[in-house]
Nucleic acid binder design. Structure first.
Lengths: 235, 235
DNA sequence: CGTAACCTTGATTAAGATCAATTCTCGTGG
DNA sequence: CCACGAGAATTGATCTTAATCAAGGTTACG
């Protein structure tokens, strides 16, 4: 596979040509379509993944079928690294499972699988990669902390407002520079599952915020009409 | 300070005498009483901590005063390492904040502060510590995943049952070997804040499980009367 | 023993989930 | 180009869980 892609991935950015080539040799590219399962949390652990294109959701399902999305992974980013570092030194690798389910949310979602065993060797020889991984984990931990804080200490309205603001700050819609708007890249069903609610409640919340002239929802586009109020409502 | 204590801490277990001495020189021991604040999430980041004795809660507070506990840290364990690895390479250390609040839950809670700057240097020279930290982060991530799963996909009864089972598996009460029981080391208020509910609801849930002859609650001691049912209820 | 912190119990309320019925949107094939 | 159908989204009515409010009881500890 092409090493140029891997170089864009944060944790590999410090590798030299030699290491890069080595890495390319062991990893495998896979392509998925919208709705395809990348792995279930019941499957034995093979290694971790890097997204190249598309979008991946990491999620859990309750016994009665409700779903909660833990992460939405945009390229180029890694996921499912956690089991790499659990029970280090033990040999019962076969018993490791993926920590959650992963599904492609867009057609042509391309991911790279980095096999656990080979990667661990590389890791031990390179402090730089370790520190980059630590930094990735730190970001992940910060995100989960924030996620829990939102879920436990804020109501649905606050969470929706907070989501819009975060999206706005991260990926300002480039097609409408001047306008304060965001473009949803997931279905409202998935958004609800990410915000810890259901689609009906999400729909009602959007409507409420619209009635209060804070936002305007047109399909997948959300226009922020009153930034100050939106920030106020999210607190 | 005594290096024997630090050796018991997982991430330091691989250090040699020299490194250990170096570490002891830079770190500071602090003792707290029950209810004392170790840090607020508004404070500038100084470094991370290790618990030696006692118990520490890591928590967040909502605008209207509700509290949610993210972690309960038993010795010997680290906490507040996340900011160490964020924005690596940037120099604006003064602007880092702690990710949450930390409070001692017992008298004579002793912790060691490892200053960020000096520790980072040690880290870069030692792959083993890096990997140990990665493993610690992995455990933390797994815990937060599980925590979110519980909070979003299970009702209070399931969460309470799950908590009892986890406690039973981790710290089987040594004073009553034969009996299937656990001893709470936190107040019911704190337990409620950890399980994402309030003390009244927790009290009612305990009563319900008691009425169903699944458990028996005597103050801080919880006796498991029907393990099979308890497991069933937790799912 | 007295007081404060902790816990339990009951009555009421509110947020959001569930159930059910439309409506909207968009891709596909006639 | 239009009609069709399926999936996505909206809306309304109702129900459930757990939070809130309020009062009283228990425990621990000086």
């Amino acid at each position: 596979m092409d090493s140029a892609i891997l170089k864009k991935v944060h944790i590999f950015s410090g590798l030299d040509e030699e290491e890069m080539e080595q890495l390319c040799k062991i990893c495998r590219v896979k392509t998925f379509n919208k709705g395809d399962i990348i792995f279930f949390d019941t499957e034995p652990y093979l290694g971790f993944y890097i997204t190249i294109t598309g979008l991946v959701k990491i999620y859990k399902i309750s016994k009665d079928g409700r779903e909660h999305i833990l992460h939405l992974i945009n390229p180029p980013n890694t996921f499912a690294e956690v089991p790499l570092f659990e029970n280090l030194g033990e040999i019962h690798e076969e018993s490791y499972r993926y920590p959650a389910n992963a599904m492609a949310l867009e057609d042509e979602t391309r991911v790279v699988l980095i096999p656990a065993r080979q990667f661990t060797e590389l890791l031990e020889s390179d402090t730089k990669i370790c520190i980059k991984m630590l930094s990735g984990f730190a970001r992940r931990l910060r995100h989960l902390n924030h996620h829990i804080e939102e879920l436990t200490l804020k109501d649905v309205t606050k969470r929706v407002a907070g989501f819009i603001l975060t999206e706005y700050n991260n990926n300002r819609d480039p097609k409408s520079e001047a306008k304060q708007s965001i473009k949803l890249n997931i279905s409202k069903n998935d958004l609800a599952a990410y915000l810890g609610t259901i689609i009906e409640t999400l729909s009602r919340t959007f409507k409420k915020l619209q009635d209060e002239d804070i936002i305007e929802v047109e399909g997948k586009k959300i226009l922020i009409k009153d930034m100050k109020k939106l920030k106020e409502v999210s607190k």
